[in-house]
Design a binder for these strands. Structure first.
Lengths: 153, 153
DNA sequence: AGAATCCAGACCGATTCAATCAAGTATTCG
DNA sequence: CGAATACTTGATTGAATCGGTCTGGATTCT
């Protein structure tokens, strides 16, 4: 039931771009340093996000990445599907990456029926949250941090 | 976000035992044949389920496996945790298999905050469903099948 | 031209996965 | 008892995946 590190990095990088969303591009090395992600690996991931249409890039000396659309339009479920594949815990209940399972009778498989519920609950949650939500959370958590600091002083 | 085949087999085997729950034991080969699971592999998995306290075994010529407790007492979340590990999509939001992630500040990580929701929704679902539910579903699906057959005739 | 930056894809070592095998132990039955 | 049966334990294997690096190229700015 795990998200790979690759997916985690992708979402962290997107959040980074989302918080700083503007016409300006941000360099890989800058994201890599701030988010503690190996640069070469991140390079690969951002490229993948680009082919997925989530970010766009600028080459050359003043190059970098920025979001390809506003954060509200970037759905987390879509990002994970692009980077990782199915959301569903088993292939035979996946809507987007269905594959037949080897149980004797799929239509009458009890496991399938409960795993479908799991899938639906995951999908429902990730389908309704967008990068904008992640950004909001990030900012809210940051604000909480600052007020804590005030309180301590 | 995937359950491994191993986990799937474990749950299918348990369901098989649940439907036929009694004092009598059932042989590996019988389960293997009915559920279309490689025998040697299933052997390994049932053993694992035994050390987890979900099934108990009888050796020798009339040997086999049966549930170690009534189906209502076997919680699906527990089975998956024993066979697969964490339910949570990332380690830093797991209650039972926590591991630190490499983001700069875990307490203020937006991704963590949303993945925690995913974890909770998965855990909530799997924590409240027991093997008894799987058995009920299996029987209900089977009944639907039979009435279909009647209708056709 | 030269430096900085993204782009494309091969490559690699380690781990995990699914599955098999071999040898051992317990139990029943003739 | 002894043979047959079935679980037990742990090693092994081949393939796939994972996290990550490396090389070499294409673009753009100065």
């Amino acid at each position: 039931m795990k998200l790979t590190v690759r997916g985690e990095y992708a979402l962290r990088a997107l959040t980074h771009l989302g918080v700083r969303h503007s016409a300006k591009v941000i360099q890989i090395s800058s994201i890599s340093a701030a988010e503690n992600i190996p640069k070469r690996f991140l390079e690969q991931i951002l490229n993948d996000l680009r082919t997925g249409g989530f970010v766009e890039s600028r080459r050359g000396v003043a190059g970098g990445y920025r979001l390809a659309k506003p954060p509200e339009k970037i759905v987390i479920a879509g990002v994970i599907r692009h980077i990782e594949g199915a959301l569903a815990p088993i292939g035979c209940v996946s809507e987007n990456y269905y594959e037949k399972c080897n149980c004797p009778d799929e239509a009458r498989c009890a496991l399938r029926s409960i795993m479908k519920e799991v899938r639906d609950s995951i999908a429902h949650l990730l389908e309704k949250t967008t990068l904008a939500d992640l950004v909001t959370r990030a900012e809210k958590l940051r604000a909480a941090d600052l007020s804590d600091a005030d309180f301590v002083i």
